[in-house]
Amino acid sequence: MIPRIVPEGALVYVWPSLAPKALSILRDRGCRIAVEVINFHTQAEKRIIEEEMDREGLTYSHYVTPEKIASQEIFLNDADIVFSSNALARQSLVDYGCDAEKIVLTRYASQCTIPPIPKPLRGNQDGPLEFLFVGRVNLEKGVHHLLRGWKQAGEPGTLHLYGILDSAFANAFADFLNLPSVKLHGYSDAIDEAYKKADAFLFLSLAEGGPQVTVEAAEHGLPMVTSVNGGGRIAVDGKTALVVDPTDVDSTAHAIRRISDDADLRARLGNAARDFSREFTWEQAARERFGAMTRQRGSV
């Protein structure tokens, strides 16, 4: 199929899910390759997960296999352009041997339907707040750090966890997941509704590229507590979010309490995040990629 539809010498945009054999065919036809890397280098992901497992005294298999690492290496070696969505993810690629000259920083947007006007943020007099997390409920997303911070903060409302729950994580952190203030919802196709009902967003991921969930939360005007990785390019400490070290439970708990106790802070962060989210559109993301590919085409 590929030889019939791709002209020789074309500049081709691919995702890492493309079969290595197909990539080889493109190279044999003299094509130049632009590849999307949506997260950290897989070896960096593996290191982060295994460091967390060691810290927590856990041992179980995870998704970063030797085969996945080897496949990514093929793509990075063959690529003429590598798209990466934040500085930390970019650095992880460089640390594991990717040519820095290939890497182009860009952005992602979201899949949510953005409300035409922001919802009024509830005041503290309106009852307990609704806090939201969206993503896989596992070590890499830092949910164990979030749960510890949540408990130390005094469980100031209800924490809703939306996403697939890893079974090994569920067994290891059952005491936290079974707190009365923590609600597990699993995967949802109607995640817009969760954002609309939430008062704040919590996301302490340990390895991210361009976390769409953080952009979605910002678009819905939610004040955020994030890690540096979980915040991506949209979480600016003190302006659009409170950015914490996820391994520092005191810092996390303090940030959650600040968000919970201060309605004015929630309003300021949420409004600023919504305003900033206008720069994270798929149109802008496409322009950045198209510009990089056009420059690459013109360089040969």
Rank of each mutant, 00 (worst) to 15 (best):
E288M: 06
A170E: 09
L11H: 14
N229D: 13
S277C: 09
V94D: 06
W282V: 02
G231Y: 03
A273L: 07
A200Q: 11
G163P: 03
A241L: 07
D166L: 04
Q152A: 14
R258I: 02
P246T: 14
R136N: 10
L179Q: 15
Y162C: 09
E8T: 12
P156S: 09
Q284N: 13
E216L: 06
A272V: 00
T247R: 14
G221D: 02
A190C: 07
R107E: 02
V134Q: 03
S61Q: 15
N138V: 02
A218C: 07
A255V: 04
V12H: 01
V104K: 13
G238N: 10
A285V: 03
D275P: 00
A100W: 01
D54P: 00
A19M: 06
V244F: 11
F83P: 01
N86R: 11
A272N: 08
R266I: 02
R297G: 13
A100P: 08
F131K: 09
M1N: 07
K197M: 05
M293R: 02
G127M: 10
T226C: 12
A174T: 07
H144F: 05
R4F: 12
P115K: 12
N77W: 13
H62W: 13
Q152D: 13
K102H: 03
G142D: 07
K196M: 15
E279W: 01
V236Q: 14
W15C: 09
I33P: 02
P66K: 12
R266E: 01
L222A: 11
